[in-house]
Computed example of a mutant assay.
Amino acid sequence: MTRLHTQLSRFEDAFPGFRTEIVEGSVVACPLRAHHAGTIYEAWNALAPQLGPEWDLVSDVVFPFDEDNELCPDLAVIPEPEADRNELAYPPDLIELVVEVVSQGSIRRDYEAKPRCYASRGIADYLVLDPLKGQCVTMWNPGPDGYRGRDTIPYGPDLTVDSPLGKLTIPTANLPVDPKARPRP
């Protein structure tokens, strides 16, 4: 874990306004836009009051998965005592639920590469909030090659996930949608 974090930490100040990760062995820097941050904010505010006191949300902290993947989820639910430690990096086995928000540069990573990493560690639920398409994708039933279950839901109705943490709901009607996104059905 230390070696990977040391590699990534060299880039922390090199790309202001970008989120930097190591995905599939490559250093990736993604620009952050207002809809990305707004979606994280809305999801955080929806999930936080639903979690028991033993759980907390963290955002954009490092989770080294293996030699080729050091991910910084947009939101991850981890045990509250671990979040209170305020670390730069955490073991990925702490994650109970993960949420990624799609940006123009992260489409393939969020839909293909990251699900394999998250599922390989047994993270029960992976949520993709996609302001580019105005939809959410829920993935569950993790296996060694990815998630076996997947639903795509257009923004509008509440998204409810029956997770090991209980039923969690994220209202989607007011999530930001990129103006260039496909029109909602």
Rank of each mutant, 00 (worst) to 15 (best):
M1Q: 14
T2P: 13
H5P: 08
T6D: 15
S9D: 15
R10F: 02
F11P: 05
F11I: 04
F15H: 11
T20M: 02
I22D: 02
E24C: 05
G25A: 05
S26P: 00
V27R: 06
C30D: 11
A34P: 00
A37W: 00
A37R: 02
G38N: 14
P49C: 12
L57A: 04
V61A: 12
V62K: 15
F63I: 08
P73G: 11
L75Y: 08
L75C: 09
I78H: 01
E80N: 11
P81R: 09
P91A: 10
P91I: 03
P92V: 03
L94F: 11
I95T: 01
V99Q: 06
E100Y: 10
V102T: 13
S103Y: 03
S103N: 03
D110G: 07
C117D: 08
C117S: 14
R121E: 01
G122Q: 00
G122M: 02
I123V: 14
I123C: 01
A124D: 01
D130H: 11
Q135D: 08
M139K: 09
N141P: 00
G146Q: 08
Y147F: 13
I153E: 11
P157I: 07
L159R: 15
T160V: 14
D162Q: 12
L168S: 12
I170G: 07
A173M: 09
P179N: 06
K180Y: 01
K180F: 00
A181V: 05
R182W: 08
